[in-house]
């Protein structure tokens, strides 16, 4: 890819185009879900615009980040749950 960024999702490297959000990158990586709900069910993004909080993941150690609002940056460490 010409203008690409490498990030790690659950310790696996993923290459995405520059300007890709973390949520989109996770969906690209075929991870089953983004987070576990409070009763342990898998969840993934719904609104795509920072409203529903379903796409929360840990980014560079910071929990509860809305992955649909964050662009991938080179070297970013993303953790789903």
């Amino acid at each position: 890819m010409a203008d690409s960024v490498w990030i790690s999702i659950d310790e696996l490297p993923v290459e995405v185009e520059h300007g890709t959000t973390v949520a989109a990158a996770i969906l690209k990586s075929d991870t089953a879900g983004f987070r576990r709900s409070v009763t342990g069910k898998w969840r993934g993004p719904v609104c795509g615009m920072g409203i529903c909080f379903e796409c929360r993941v840990t980014i560079n150690g910071q929990p509860h980040r809305r992955s649909c609002l964050v662009y991938c940056e080179s070297g970013m460490m993303v953790r789903t749950k």
Partner: peptide, 21 residues
């Protein structure tokens, strides 16, 4: 409706626009 990959209509569009294949 809580299953992963059930999304909003605008929601899926937004995700595709931001790089989801």
């Amino acid at each position: 409706w809580t299953l992963p990959n059930v999304m909003g209509a605008g929601g899926l569009q937004a995700l595709v626009k931001s790089g989801m294949p």
